[in-house]
Amino acid sequence: MRPESPMTRVFGRPPVLIETPTHYCPGCTHGIAHRLVAEVIDELGLRGRTIGVASVGCSVLAYHYLDVDFQQAAHGRAPAVATGIKRVLPGRVVFTYQGDGDLAAIGTAEIIHAANRGERITVIFINNAVYGMTGGQMAPTTLVGMRTTTTPAGRDPVVYGFPLRVAELLAPLPGVAYASRVALSSPAHVNRAKRSIRRAFQTQLDGLGFSIVEMLSTCPVGWGQTPIDAMRWLEAEMFPVFPLGELKAPAEVKA
């Protein structure tokens, strides 16, 4: 037997991420997003004081994966539920985890008003350009010309307008302290995404206002693509429409 070599741990499961089989489809980036949120909660030591709000979409079962208190909200209403929690328990860390149908279609009023009030909550926003859970229908973020089950001939901007840029829409509101858009399509992007989530939570911890991280994600099943093609498609087609970067960040948390 060889003597034990001194090793440093470089990778492991964050304790907040529950070890359980996933219900997400192969190649879906919801799982990556969950992991990043878990890592940040662990690294910031927030496990005992964080409350998540799960939305209606494929991530409805987020509470099966993230080991913190959770409340499951009606479709689109997560920012209102989060507001209720945060107003009564201002010392807790509150975040919502919402898809683009949930946040940018049915929940538009709630997200805009939570942002405008400067609610001290963090919003993890998964933009995968379709409704995943219900079978690949058009979302407000669906690209022009993109075929979905409710736009069989492709999204026509004359009928449905153009993809809604949520980060750009919210960033100018004075209540918004942090807004960014990241992608989950490559290791480098994933690392950047994690930094961004950290800053969003830090913004909340510092009491600076509303924070949102929009994450460009894949839905291979809804897009009818292989996982690898979906990653490529995300970068080739979504990047030009949804530019990455920090749209707004308080000087204090800029790293």
Binding site: A105, I106, T134, T149
Partner: peptide, 16 residues
């Protein structure tokens, strides 16, 4: 309409 299971075949048919 707005998508919701278990009736999405109905709007999807009409979309076509």
């Amino acid at each position: 309409g707005y998508p919701v299971t278990p009736q999405s075949e109905l709007p999807e048919y009409l979309a076509r």
